[in-house]
């Protein structure tokens, strides 16, 4: 198990982060160095001012009101996924260090861990619901015809990440908290990788290792997949009101 952990949760993480960062940088460099479309591609109605355009871009990207109007079901499930993913991301930041003020506000470390358990469980469940909806949607009709292997690969990776994340949350969430993961992750950042005892006990390592395996693969594939819409959608929506 320790070998598995070293592969997935040490060397895998280093490799994944390197590929992710370089890949994304290359993608952005490619976009930035390709000449702009000679034609103004905007459509109407569009704001007259630069700040108006900027806020419309934020609104269109973060809320997608037009998409909500035409396909509310897809919009709801997509919103569920994206908002939950954001919440999960924010929650994961605890492995870098405890949030300031928040634990005191909630009434101590124990309460903070309790809150994280609830919030994490909800976010993890909602993300799972979103991904299952997307998988189901791609199994029939025009959605199936339009799908390419890339779509299924990404959904499979996401499913793996989420299922194993939920597993860690629901099975070990009662006694392994952020501080334990923090020890491991900070050791990675300090380039002195180690695993705290708690992570090596029982089968915890297998779960964490698998969660990290899927995460590594997802991160490495991210820059070469349609997931770059996380960045590109801002630019494309800005062009809408050009």
């Amino acid at each position: 198990m320790e070998t598995y952990l070293w592969i997935t949760s040490v060397w895998g993480v280093y490799l994944a982060l390197a590929v992710f960062i370089v890949g994304i940088a290359l993608r952005i460099y490619q976009w930035a160095t390709t000449p702009k479309s000679p034609v103004r591609l905007g459509m109407f109605p569009k704001p007259a001012t630069k700040s108006g355009r900027f806020f419309k871009m934020l609104k269109d990207t973060l809320i997608a009101p037009h998409s909500a109007k035409i396909e509310p079901t897809m919009w709801i499930f997509s919103m569920i996924f994206h908002v939950a993913a954001l919440a999960a991301f924010v929650g994961h930041l605890r492995i870098l260090g405890e949030y300031p003020i928040l634990p005191e506000l909630l009434g101590g470390e124990h309460a903070m861990n309790n809150f994280a358990a609830y919030a994490g469980s909800i976010a993890g469940t909602l993300m799972l619901i979103g991904v299952v909806f997307w998988i189901a949607r791609r199994t029939f009709g025009p959605y199936k015809n339009l799908s390419v292997p890339e779509d299924y690969l990404l959904l499979a990776l996401l499913f793996g990440v989420i299922i194993m994340g939920d597993h860690l949350r629901f099975v070990y969430g009662g006694f392994i908290h952020a501080d334990t993961y923090q020890e491991w992750f900070k050791s990675l950042l300090a380039f002195k990788p180690m695993f705290p005892e708690k992570l090596l006990s029982g089968n915890v390592g297998w779960s964490l290792g698998t969660h990290m395996l899927f995460t590594d693969l997802l991160l490495m594939y991210f820059p070469f997949s349609k997931l770059v819409h996380t960045i590109g959608s801002f630019a494309a929506n800005y062009v809408r009101s050009e």
Partner: peptide, 18 residues
């Protein structure tokens, strides 16, 4: 051009355009 590249790169094939 940049827009074309971005359009091709980011389309998620969500089929909302359907």
């Amino acid at each position: 051009n940049r827009q074309l590249k971005q359009y091709i790169d980011i389309c998620a094939r969500c089929a909302i355009c359907k």
